[in-house]
Design a binder for these strands. Structure first.
Length: 676
RNA sequence: GGGCCCGUAGCUCAAGCGGAUAGAGCAUCGGAUUUCUAAUCCGAGGGUUGCAGGUUCGAUUCCUGCCGGGCCUACCA
C-alpha cells in the first residue's frame, strides 16, 4: 500500500516539475518523516532545486505545495522547516484499502530466477555458518516468490573434491573400514556427525606425517576418474551426508528443487564445452613460462585490465567483445588465476564458469536428472546424474541468478562474472549477483565453553573463526536441539495442559523462529560472533517476541469468538470511511495510525530487501510491527471496550497487524504456534 | 604489496539515494497486571558515530590520509 502510494506520488511530482519548471528529474528522493505527526512522506527536493532555480528552498517548497494539486489518496502537502515538503495521506482511505487487502498488482519482471544456496561440502555435518547461508538464501527465495517471481532453488554439491576425499581416506586408511561397514554406518542416524569427527582426525593425520598427503592425492584422483571402488565409496559417503543435510534443512523448512553435482560437471564434459569457448574468446591464455608455466590462466577479477567496458556503458556487445579480446594477454604473474593446471586438470573456478554458463543456458549441454528426495508436501528434489529420467522439469536457462556465497569467495565469484563478460555475455554478467555475506564465527567465550583451549592472542580477538577441518564449531543439528530443549522447558512450564505432541511442535516452532530470526537480524556485512546466550534468547529483538505478538492477537479473536481473517475483510465493509477517520485522524489517532502505517509497509519492505539483497530489513520490520502491536495490546483492552464502533475498529487494527505480521514471518520462514 | 569489508551507548547491533533531536535489544536502576497470557508494557541513565582534513545549505552515510581489526590474494575447494 505504502509502496504503491509512493510510486503515485513520485509520478505526479515528476509530471508537475516538468509542467511548472520544465525540469526532468530522474530520481525524486522520497523520505519518511522522523515523526508520525509530520506526515507519511517527506520531500527534500526543494533543497536540490534551490541552486537550479536560483531561489530559496522555502520559496520553492511553497510554490510546489501551492501548485501540485490533488492526488488520489493524499490529503495535503505542507512546508516544514527550511524547505521540507511533508506529505499526508488520507488515513481513512488507506486503512480501508489495507483492511480489505486490496493490493494493487505490481509488475513482475519477466523470466525465471535461480537462487543457489547452502552448497555444503558433503563430507561432514552442517554447522552454524551453513545455517546462515541457507537461512539467508531460503528467505531470499521466499521474498522473490512473494514478489511474484518464479524461482528455482539449487544447492551445488561438490562431491568430488578434496574434502570428500579426506573422509574417504579416514574410513579406508585410518579406520580401515570395509565398504560394507561404511554402508552400515551411513545408514545409521547422524552419519554426518561421524564424518565430522573423522574429518578432523584426518586433518590431524596429515599434519603428523606429510607423506600421508600422498594418500589424499591418490584418493582424489581415483574419485575424479570414477568407475572404481574408491569412487563408489566416495559416492556412497557424499550421498549419505547430503541426505543428512537435506534432513537438517528440512527441520528449518528449507527445500531445494535441484542438486547439481560436480561429478556430472566432470562426467558430462561441461568443462570441455566451456574450455573451447574460453580459448576461442581469448579469456584463457596459455603460459609459456614463469611460475604458471604450462597452465591456462585468466586475469583475476579486480586487477587493472579486467575493468573492461560493459554492455551497459556502450550498449554495443561487439565493441565489448573487441575490447576484451586481448583479455589474457600479458597478465602480470600476480594477477593470474590458474584455471587449468599444468597437469591438465581443471580447478574449481573453471568448473564454476562452466556451471554458470549452463545456468544462463549458454553452454549447449544439460545435466541428466533423477528424483532424489521427496518432501512431506510431495515436492520432489531432483539431483544431477549422467543418464537420467526422461521426464523432468526444465532447470537452468534462467534470466537472473543469485549466488548465496560468503564474502571470502567474492574474488572467485567476480572472476566467473568476468569470464562471462569476456565470452561476450555481458547481459548475463549483469544479471549475475553474488549475494555476499560475512561468516559466522564464535566469541572467544563460546569457543572456551565448547572446550577449546585458547591462546592469549585468541582470547583478545573479537571472534574465532569456525573450522570444519579442525572439527571446531557448532553443528546445526546440535544448535537446533539445544534451542528446542530450551523452548520446551518454557512451553512445559507455561502449558502443562497441552499434549506431548502439541508441546513438542510448539517448542520446535519457537526454536525455528528464534534461529531463523537470529540469522536474519544482522546485516550481511556484519560478522556474527556466535554465542549461545544470544542465540538462545527468546526475549526482546527475537523471533519468539514476534511470534508472541501474533499469538496474543489471535487470542483476542479466539476469546471474542471471531475469525480474524474474515473479520479483516468484513471490517472494510462494516466500518465506514467516517469511522476510520474518527479513530485515525488528528493527534488522538497518531498512536494507532502508526500501527496501520507500519502494517501498510510490508510490500515496500519486501521490495527494499530484494533490491538491496538484504533480508535484515525484513527482520527489522517484523520487530517493529510486533513492538507497536505489543504496546497497542497493552494500552487498549479490546474485548472489554464498551463502545461497539470503537471495539470494531480496534479489532480491525489487531486483525490487520496480525495478518501482516504472519505474512512477514512467513517470508522469513517462521511459522506461528497456536499458543505460547 | 594489492583487493574487499568493518570500526556507532558498558555489550550486541540499526540508521532506506547525503536530510529534521543518531535509534533498538541486552545489561543496570525504578515502575506496571487479581488481564484479550508478564516470552509483555512504561520510565531513567548511558554517544566527540576510531582520528584528521575535504565536498555540501546539511555527513554515521560521499572523497583523501592516518589508526585499529577481519577476510581474500595456492597449479585447495
Amino acid at each position: 500500500m505504502y509502496r504503491y502510494l509512493e510510486r503515485r506520488l513520485v509520478e505526479h511530482l515528476r509530471e508537475f516539475l516538468r509542467r511548472a519548471y520544465d525540469l526532468q528529474i530522474t530520481t525524486i528522493v522520497v523520505e519518511q518523516p522522523p515523526k508520525i505527526e509530520f506526515g507519511e512522506y517527506a520531500l527534500p527536493l526543494a533543497f536540490e532545486l534551490a541552486r537550479k532555480l536560483r531561489k530559496a528552498p522555502r520559496k520553492i517548497a511553497e510554490e510546489v505545495v501551492a501548485g501540485v494539486g490533488s492526488i488520489p489518496g493524499f490529503e495535503k502537502f505542507e512546508v516544514a522547516g527550511g524547505g521540507y515538503i511533508n506529505v499526508r495521506v488520507n488515513r481513512a482511505e488507506v486503512a480501508a484499502e489495507l483492511a480489505a487487502d486490496r493490493a494493487p498488482v505490481a509488475e513482475v519482471p519477466a523470466g525465471k530466477v535461480l537462487v543457489e544456496h547452502s552448497s555444503i561440502n558433503p563430507n561432514k555435518a552442517a554447522h552454524i555458518g551453513h545455517l546462515r547461508n541457507a537461512i539467508l538464501g531460503d528467505t531470499f527465495v521466499r521474498l522473490l516468490r512473494l514478489a511474484g517471481r518464479e524461482v528455482d532453488v539449487q544447492n551445488y554439491i561438490d562431491n568430488t573434491g578434496a574434502q570428500v576425499a579426506d573422509v574417504v581416506v579416514g574410513f579406508l586408511h585410518i579406520e580401515k573400514k570395509s565398504r560394507a561397514e561404511i554402508e552400515a554406518l551411513a545408514a545409521a542416524p547422524r552419519f554426518d556427525f561421524v564424518c565430522w569427527d573423522l574429518y578432523a582426525r584426518v586433518s590431524h593425520w596429515y599434519e603428523e606425517n606429510k607423506a600421508n598427503l600422498q594418500v589424499r592425492l591418490a584418493t582424489l584422483h581415483a574419485i575424479e576418474e570414477g568407475k572404481n571402488e574408491t569412487a563408489a565409496i566416495a559416492d556412497l559417503i557424499s550421498v549419505a551426508v547430503l541426505r543428512r543435510h537435506l534432513e537438517t534443512m528440512e527441520r528449518l523448512d528449507i527445500e531445494y528443487d535441484f542438486l547439481p553435482r560436480e561429478s556430472e560437471i566432470l562426467h558430462l564434459h561441461f568443462w570441455d564445452a566451456a574450455f573451447t569457448k574460453l580459448k576461442e574468446s581469448g579469456v584463457l591464455t596459455y603460459e609459456n613460462d614463469g611460475k604458471n608455466k604450462g597452465c591456462w590462466v585468466m586475469r583475476r577479477a579486480g586487477t587493472a585490465a579486467a575493468k573492461s567496458l560493459t554492455t551497459e556503458d556502450t550498449g554495443d556487445t561487439e565493441a565489448v567483445r573487441q575490447n576484451t579480446m586481448p583479455f589474457g594477454l600479458d597478465i602480470a604473474e600476480e594477477d593470474q588465476k590458474v584455471i587449468v593446471r599444468s597437469n591438465g586438470t581443471v580447478g574449481y573456478v573453471g568448473k564454476d564458469i562452466a556451471y554458470h554458463m549452463w545456468k544462463f543456458g549458454l553452454l549447449g549441454r544439460d545435466f541428466g536428472y533423477r528424483k532424489f528426495f521427496r518432501y512431506p508436501n510431495d515436492r520432489d528434489c531432483w539431483i544431477s546424474t549422467t543418464d537420467g529420467e526422461i521426464n523432468h522439469p526444465h532447470f537452468g536457462d534462467v534470466a537472473e541468478i543469485y549466488n548465496v556465497i560468503d564474502a571470502r569467495q567474492s574474488e572467485a565469484q567476480n572472476t566467473v562474472i568476468e569470464a562471462l563478460r569476456g565470452l561476450g555475455h555481458g547481459e548475463a554478467a549483469d544479471r549475475y549477483t553474488h549475494f555476499s555475506y560475512e561468516m559466522v564465527a564464535l566469541t572467544p567465550r563460546c569457543a572456551a565453553e565448547l572446550g577449546y583451549t585458547l591462546s592469549e592472542e585468541d582470547r583478545a580477538r573479537p571472534w574465532i573463526e569456525v573450522s570444519g577441518r579442525k572439527g571446531f564449531g557448532v553443528k546445526a543439528d546440535d544448535l537446533l536441539d539445544a534451542l528446542i530443549a530450551s523452548a520446551r522447558n518454557e512451553v512445559d512450564a507455561r502449558h502443562p495442559e497441552l499434549s506431548e505432541g502439541e508441546r513438542a511442535s510448539t517448542a520446535a516452532q519457537i526454536a525455528i523462529g528464534a534461529l531463523r530470526y537470529f540469522m536474519l537480524k544482522f546485516t550481511k556485512t556484519s560478522v556474527i560472533a556466535f554465542d549461545f546466550k544470544d542465540a538462545l534468547s527468546f526475549e526482546g529483538d527475537t523471533g519468539p517476541y514476534a511470534q508472541y505478538a501474533v499469538v496474543r492477537a489471535s487470542n483476542i479473536f479466539r476469546k471474542g469468538g471471531f475469525d480474524p481473517e474474515s473479520f479483516c475483510r468484513d471490517a472494510a465493509s462494516q466500518l465506514s470511511a467516517e469511522d476510520f477517520a474518527r479513530y485515525l485522524n488528528g493527534e488522538a489517532g497518531d498512536g494507532i495510525w502508526a500501527l496501520w502505517l507500519a502494517a501498510a509497509k510490508t510490500s515496500y519492505i519486501v521490495g527494499q530487501c530484494i533490491a538491496t539483497t538484504e533480508p535484515a530489513h525484513l527482520a527489522k520490520h517484523a520487530f517493529q510491527l510486533a513492538q507497536l502491536f505489543s504496546a497497542f495490546y497493552h494500552r487498549y483492552p479490546i474485548l472489554s471496550e464498551a463502545d461497539e464502533g470503537r471495539k470494531k475498529f480496534l479489532l480491525a487494527t489487531a486483525a490487520v497487524v496480525r495478518r501482516e505480521l504472519i505474512r512477514v514471518l512467513a517470508a522469513m520462514g517462521i511459522g506461528v504456534p497456536a499458543v505460547m
